[in-house]
Amino acid sequence: MAKMKGAVVVDVERCKGCELCIVNCPQGVLANLKSQVNAKGYPYVYMKNPDDCTGCTNCAVVCPDGVLTVYRIKV
């Protein structure tokens, strides 16, 4: 059976660290790197577990700020 592999690109400067993408990711891919902030002072999200991403787009769909771009391939 074909498996989906995905990847998320974070527009770091647009992210406000609301974490809605994190709780809505079914694979637990995203996390907030609390130790780093963007120019506006927001801690932003990153792909903590990139191997688990299926490219389902749920994170981007709930993101209020259009931070996330999603890519996907069949493997």
């Binding site: 990847a7 787009t57 769909v61 999603v70 890519y71």
Partner: peptide, 8 residues
Amino acid sequence: ENLVYERT
């Protein structure tokens, strides 16, 4: 070619 979601 793998893009599935981007900001409009």
